[in-house]
């Protein structure tokens, strides 16, 4: 019973390593360092990185920008609630609002084009989860996150809320339609 007894040697820190330990530590360390380097490498060579561009904002200021975009680029309305579907020009700034319990407005983006997608919350924390492509981000009130996205698949996407935000959490959805460029 020795792990529950004091070490046999008074100067246990001088006890030599067993070879099995030394070898494994070396291997594990190399692997750890490799995994560390992968992340900066992916920033250089990979295509899926968050820019981490973000600004402080207020619900009022953010809503004003989103409303301006909706006024300018709404192409139609949908659902019983007449939600606007907005088709902003490629390359432009797109404002998505998360609030209890919807993602507003619905968006229509062109396949293969890039957009600067801004997202912020008007109230509590929300989770932006784009399905089925499976892109997830945390959305906070007071912070405006900017993601430059390039939809390169044709399937329409549903935005699901994946941060618990109260009773209507599971009903908080939105839509990004993907259309062919004109």
């Amino acid at each position: 019973m020795s792990a529950i007894q004091p070490p046999a040697e008074a100067v246990w820190w001088k006890q030599p390593l067993d070879r099995v330990e030394g070898t494994w530590i070396a291997i594990a360390l190399v692997w750890s360092l490799f995994m560390f380097i992968m992340m900066p490498l992916w920033h250089i060579y990979g295509k899926q990185n968050l820019s981490n561009e973000a600004y402080r904002t207020t619900p009022q200021a953010y809503m004003a920008k989103a409303q301006a975009m909706v006024n300018q680029y709404t192409v139609r309305t949908e659902t019983a609630a007449n939600l606007p579907v907005v088709r902003p020009p490629p390359g432009s700034d797109v404002y998505l609002v998360g609030r209890l319990w919807q993602w507003w407005p619905l968006l229509e983006l062109e396949q293969g084009q890039s957009y600067r997608l801004h997202i912020s919350s008007m109230d509590w924390q929300h989770g932006f989860s784009l399905q089925p492509v499976n892109i997830n981000a945390q959305i906070l009130p007071g912070y405006e996150m900017v993601l430059t996205i390039t939809p390169d698949t044709p399937a329409d996407q549903t935005i699901i809320c994946n941060e618990y935000c109260g009773l209507g959490h599971h009903n908080m959805t939105g839509k990004i339609y993907i259309v062919e460029g004109s």
Binding site: T79, S129, I160, N162, H169, K175
Partner: peptide, 20 residues
């Protein structure tokens, strides 16, 4: 991995305005 959410009551989105 297929995008099912945690802390989520209804993966079928029965009452949501926009389903998935």
């Amino acid at each position: 991995t297929l995008g099912v959410q945690r802390r989520h009551w209804d993966m079928a989105f029965t009452d949501a305005m926009i389903g998935f």
